[in-house]
């Protein structure tokens, strides 16, 4: 008899919870895939393809469906990896992070033949120009993805360092790798300054 009651109670509970879940999924339904949206929002949107996917959105989708690892975004670096690992609820993975200096593409205009191939390659539409006209890059909008280097038939595009702006300078944390890199950059800057002085 007791066994019967037990089965009855559990069956009742299962039914109740099932109904609640069904109702919840109906009333709290969210359009789209919030997980991949959230991951996409964390990515640096360089659209560089270094992760092996054709852009940031496809990579976000792949991570959300657990096809890709969380550590494939090179420009995002460790910070992005940690954030993605956090919302995916997985262990953080190692990432090869070289302390990279931000770069943008630059077209040597006198060598440009106006083929428009780079314009087609740019994932963020920041190269302007027309057939048989010089092309130029809007430096403020360039994500530094390097996708335009490959298609250029005359190799007239190069990556140049973004000059460090005084307004955007930030204190490096005491005694770390980042501090050393910042220190090195300052030394280089100083040397350049002194050379100017001597010339």
């Amino acid at each position: 008899m007791h066994v019967f009651y037990a089965i009855l109670i559990f069956a009742g509970l299962a039914l109740l919870i099932g109904v609640v879940l069904a109702l919840a999924s109906r009333y709290f339904h969210v359009e789209g895939d919030p997980l991949s949206d959230n991951i996409d929002a964390l990515l640096p949107q360089t659209q560089c393809g270094q992760c092996g996917y054709p852009g940031c959105r496809p990579y976000a989708n792949a991570v959300a469906s657990q096809e890709a690892e969380v550590n494939q975004c090179v420009p995002g670096g460790e910070r992005t990896m940690l954030e993605i690992a956090d919302i995916m609820g997985v262990e953080p993975k190692d990432i090869e992070e070289e302390e990279s200096v931000p770069v943008v593409a630059y077209i040597r205009e006198d060598e440009c033949i106006g083929c428009t191939l780079c314009i087609k390659a740019c994932p963020v539409d920041c190269i302007i120009g027309a057939p048989k006209q010089y092309h130029t890059i809007i430096a403020d909008q360039c994500t530094g993805c390097t996708l335009c280097l490959e298609p250029c038939p005359v190799d007239c595009i190069e990556m140049v360092e973004v000059p460090e702006l005084l307004e955007h300078w930030s204190w490096p944390v005491p005694g770390t790798l980042r501090a050393q890199v910042a220190e090195k950059r300052r030394a280089v800057h100083h040397e350049a300054n002194h050379e100017e002085e001597n010339v």
């Binding site: 640096p44 949107q45 910070r79 955007h168 930030s170």
Partner: peptide, 18 residues
């Protein structure tokens, strides 16, 4: 400040890419 700048730049880039 840098993270905020990067986020807003990423947002602009994403819009252009879309």
């Amino acid at each position: 400040a840098q993270i905020r700048r990067e986020k807003s730049f990423a947002e602009e880039s994403r819009q252009r890419s879309e």
